[in-house]
C-alpha cells in the first residue's frame, strides 16, 4: 500500500443537449427579461484597439449537414498578443477587449459569427512566437465532451509556417483544416466533425 495522492477526479462531462441555449444564451432562446444581454455577445467596443475582423463559419456533421443547435465559445489574445486574464503575467491586455465570445449557431443556417479583432502573436512555452490564433470550444447535442480546436489565419503564411504547434503536427495534409480563409475583413472557418476533411481537434 502507498499513501493516497488525495486527488479528486474531474466531474464527468455530459452533453450540452438540444436546449443549451436556454442556459447560456436565454435571450437568443426567447427567454427574455431574466438577463439583460446574453454573455459573450460583444467582445469589442468603440475603443478596442486592433484590426476589426469577423469570424464566421459552421460546424458540419458526418452527413455534411451544418449543426443548427450547437454553441461555440472562442478565446483569444488582444491585438497586441495579450490575454485579458488574471493569469496573463506579461502585461495588461486592452481593457476594451474581452477576448471571449459565445455564439449560438443560427437556427436557420447553422452559421456562427464573431465580431472581434485579429489577435497578436503569443509565445509558446519555449518562448518562440505562435502564429495568431483563436481557441474554439464547441458543444452541442450529440457531443459528449466539448471539442477544442484552434483557428489560424490564412493570410499569415509566414507566421503559420513557423508556428510551433502546427510544426509538430504529424499529418501535414490536415493543417488546412485549422486555417480560416480571408475574404475582405471576414475569415471563414468551417469545422468538420467527420470525414476526409475532419478538423483537427486537440486534447488540451
Amino acid at each position: 500500500m502507498v499513501q493516497s495522492l488525495n486527488r479528486l477526479k474531474e466531474t464527468a462531462s455530459q452533453t450540452a443537449g438540444p436546449y443549451v441555449h436556454i442556459g447560456l444564451t436565454p435571450n437568443f432562446a426567447e427567454i427574455t427579461g431574466v438577463y439583460g444581454e446574453d454573455l459573450g455577445t460583444s467582445m469589442v467596443n468603440d475603443r478596442t484597439r486592433g484590426e476589426r475582423i469577423t469570424i464566421t463559419g459552421r460546424v458540419i456533421d458526418g452527413a455534411d449537414t451544418p449543426l443548427r443547435d450547437c454553441l461555440i465559445e472562442i478565446w483569444q489574445a488582444d491585438g497586441d498578443g495579450l490575454y485579458n486574464s488574471p493569469s496573463e503575467m506579461r502585461g495588461s491586455a486592452d481593457p476594451n477587449f474581452t477576448g471571449w465570445g459565445r455564439c449560438p449557431a443560427s437556427q436557420e443556417t447553422g452559421e456562427f459569427r464573431f465580431e472581434t479583432v485579429k489577435p497578436g502573436r503569443v509565445p509558446f512555452n519555449d518562448g518562440r512566437l505562435m502564429a495568431p490564433h483563436v481557441t474554439f470550444w464547441i458543444v452541442a447535442r450529440g457531443i459528449n465532451l466539448g471539442l477544442n480546436t484552434r483557428m489560424y489565419f490564412g493570410d499569415e503564411e509566414k507566421a503559420n509556417a513557423e508556428d510551433p504547434v502546427l510544426a509538430r503536427l504529424e499529418h501535414k495534409n490536415r493543417i488546412p483544416t485549422l486555417i480560416a480563409q480571408r475574404d475582405g475583413n471576414t475569415y471563414r472557418f468551417d469545422i468538420r466533425l467527420q470525414g476526409d476533411r475532419e478538423t483537427i481537434f486537440f486534447d488540451i
Binding site: 456533421d61 458526418g62 452527413a63 449537414t65 449543426l67 489574445a77 490575454y83 493569469s87 496573463e88 503569443v122 509565445p123 509558446f124 512555452n125 505562435m130 452541442a140 447535442r141 450529440g142 457531443i143 459528449n144 471539442l147 504547434v165 503536427l169 466533425l193 467527420q194 475532419e198 478538423t199 483537427i200 481537434f201 486537440f202 486534447d203 488540451i204
Partner: peptide
C-alpha cells in the same frame, strides 16, 4: 454523426 473519428492531437497547455 457528431463524434470526431480521428485521434485527438495532444497539445501541451500554452498561454
Amino acid at each position: 454523426l457528431r463524434s470526431p473519428q480521428k485521434a485527438l492531437i495532444s497539445l501541451d497547455n500554452t498561454l
